[in-house]
Simulated assay, not measured.
Amino acid sequence: MSIIYMLLAISVLVALIFFTVFIVSVKSGQYDDMYTPSVRMLFEDEIVKEKNKKTKSKDNIKPIIYKE
Rank of each mutant, 00 (worst) to 15 (best):
V24H: 10
D32P: 01
N52G: 01
K62F: 08
V14D: 04
E44R: 14
E50P: 00
T55I: 08
D32L: 07
N52E: 08
M41H: 15
G29I: 03
G29F: 04
K54G: 07
S2R: 13
L7V: 11
M1P: 08
E68K: 12
V48W: 11
N60R: 14
L8F: 08
F18N: 03
K27C: 03
M41Q: 15
I4H: 10
K54Q: 12
D33T: 01
D32R: 09
I17D: 00
E46S: 07
D45A: 11
M41K: 15
L13G: 10
A9S: 14
D32E: 05
D59S: 13
I65S: 06
L7D: 07
Y35A: 10
I47N: 06
V14S: 03
K54S: 11
K49I: 14
V48H: 13
V14W: 05
D33W: 01
A9L: 10
I10E: 09
I65K: 14
S2Q: 13
V12E: 03
S11G: 09
K27R: 06
D32C: 03
N52K: 14
F43V: 13
Y66I: 06
V14K: 03
M1N: 15
K58S: 09
V24P: 03
N52I: 09
V26W: 01
I3V: 07
F43P: 00
K56G: 10
A15S: 15
I47Y: 04
F19W: 01
E50I: 05
I17Q: 00
K49E: 14
K56W: 07
P63Q: 12
N60G: 07
V12Q: 06
M1C: 15
S2T: 09
L7K: 10
K67L: 10
S57R: 09
I3L: 07
S11Q: 12
M1K: 15
P63K: 15
